[in-house]
Design a protein around this nucleic acid. Structure first.
Lengths: 335, 335
DNA sequence: TTTGTTACCGATACCGGTATCGGTAACAAG
DNA sequence: CTTGTTACCGATACCGGTATCGGTAACAAA
């Protein structure tokens, strides 16, 4: 019951066999007599032996790691993706390793480099907008690369997500169909959250096609939050009180907008319609429903993990593919 | 520009020097002539060389990993803790590796074993209620162990968090001081979320001291969510309509409770007071404020990371210590 | 008795880095 | 001309496992 970490060598010595035999006994591979196997297992147990994965992976030239890079942890969306990945990896013996890029491309590159140095068996990254040098690194790694959440761009190999441009377009069409004409926009951190920007751009394309444009907008450089959504909505409505609809960069912001309207006594959605994006549980539990597109983020994580498993299992299997999800719009009553 | 991963050996060959010199040049340690350094750097650049951390760590007998085990990702509280840890580790070159135990002790043991096999420099685990064999593994690892969130128990060495028993007591006292007498309880997954259980127990201790008890309670085995809080509140109020206060296992549940009351037209907090736990951003942005104790979860993560860094930097530094946070209660107007 | 077979186990060479020790060349000092 | 000193670099031995090859003992078959 020493105080130091014990090695296979020590276990072998304690069991009176060679290192190699101890290794075989513990892994249960190839021929080891029942007698010696038990001796080794007992010794390992007594020494609380925990194998050294560094040595294992270096020697066997493979790891059980799946690297995952997400931009943030503060928005519940990404933890949900991670949960999905965790579920998708379950039972495979694979272990997810997470990194947070803070929506920063330089930081993302460093994190990806760092992750790759651990020789993961696959890597899952958020979005398709990595700069060229990051993409080169990913290609050079010669492991399956799965890009998630976004589809608007050129994937390195696998791609699972939804088109945010189209999501914005669809929402715009739905709101116009519901008779809304004086629309405003509230967003945050659009320079960093590129997917939110793509939704806005898609939305504006449809407005333009219909001879319309946002009457007014409020955009802040801080990250999204309920409080920020509330504040910006107050400002927006102070400037243009007669909007009949506001599109938000996401549900957090939209929820803040709803609370602002409730305090102002504006009937939602009769007088003003609040539209967000994500379909958070929160949005669906609100006393007054807001319009939203449900992004299947947990499923995206799960599918990404499954793709990773398959690609790892048969490296020369099928060609990389793209899996398309289409968000479902809810919370808009008929026109 | 080959297709395979390149090794230090190859970089060295390309630069016309030995492996050892290439290693020195890349790390910038000890003496290498400016000339050769540049040759090596160039070769590494051209080959997109990414070091192999497995080899590095095996050879140098240390890693830059900090293992982190949390019970869940579905509750925003833990992502926030992880964000704190990420921030606390920033600039140290350390890399956090997360595992999710799903509130399952057996799974937690397996995950901890798995994490330890990567030879992390420190490990951060949630709670103090690990079974004996898990604790033995942690001790045997001979690395700093930091247990977070909870204080009610015996730590392995470092401990950062708050007393959930006391948090429950404090909330009970505050609510009684505010004149509430007919109290109900709504909770979920108490058999797994032990900290929620400790809060409830603390709350009940104070009730008992004042000759009171929960008039009625609703407990579900599912995990907390706004929707569940809403449903259980409806059930609870159907059974006992004249409660003047409900204590919830956390803010998600309490938010659901608030929405239920809003739909029933019960004035909050005049007619009925809603009390949760965590002090989520959501809770503070709600149109009607609920009572809550703010848990400094992000700070807990940050402090835990700092402790880990210190303990790694000087392994024989100070003795393990306990850092106590006291949640602040908000949202209760005077009696 | 010789020859195969089978079951089990050990020696050795890696995996891709780093630590350590020592060697060589150039130049200054004695 | 010898001796030190300094700057730079390479050989070698690990780190803790696994793959691979081969060896030994026991027993059956020829």
């Amino acid at each position: 019951m020493g105080t130091r970490k014990s090695t296979l060598e020590e276990v072998a010595a304690a069991a009176g066999v060679s290192k190699m035999t101890a290794s075989r006994a513990l892994r249960g591979t190839s021929d080891v007599s029942k007698d010696t196997r038990e001796k080794v297992l007992l010794a390992a147990e007594r020494l609380s032996y925990v194998g050294n994965r560094l040595a294992l992976s270096l020697s066997s030239q493979r790891t059980n790691l799946v690297a995952v890079v997400v931009p943030s942890m503060s928005n519940i969306v990404f933890p949900e993706v991670l949960t999905g990945i965790s579920v998708g990896l379950e039972g495979s013996g694979m272990q997810a390793v997470f990194g947070i890029s803070d929506y920063d491309v330089a930081k993302e590159r460093d994190i990806i480099r760092d992750m790759l140095s651990w020789q993961p068996a696959a890597i899952i990254v958020t979005g398709l907008d990595q700069p060229e040098d990051t993409v080169r690194m990913l290609q050079k790694a010669t492991i399956p690369v799965i890009q998630i959440m976004d589809l608007d761009g050129t994937p390195v190999d696998f791609n699972v997500g939804l088109s945010h441009g189209k999501a914005g377009e669809d929402m715009a069409r739905a709101l116009l169909a519901a008779g809304r004409r004086r629309l405003g926009y509230v967003g945050s951190a659009l320079d960093r959250d590129l997917r939110a920007g793509k939704r806005k751009a898609g939305f504006e394309r449809v407005l333009k096609q219909n001879g319309l444009a946002f009457v007014e907008q409020q955009i802040d450089s801080a990250f999204s939050s309920i409080a920020l959504g509330k504040r910006l909505t107050d400002t927006l409505l102070a400037a243009v009180p007669d909007l009949d609809c506001i599109y938000y960069s996401n549900d957090d912001m939209a929820t803040g907008g709803l609370f602002a309207c409730m305090e102002l006594g504006l009937p939602v959605p009769q007088r003003i319609l609040i539209a967000g994006f994500n379909g958070l549980d929160l949005a669906n539990a609100l006393p007054t429903r807001i319009a939203t597109s449900r992004s299947p983020r947990r499923m995206i994580g799960e599918v990404a993990a499954k793709l990773a498993r398959e690609a790892i299992a048969e490296p020369d299997g099928e060609q990389p593919k793209t899996i398309v999800f289409t968000p479902e719009i809810s919370g808009i009553s008929g026109p």
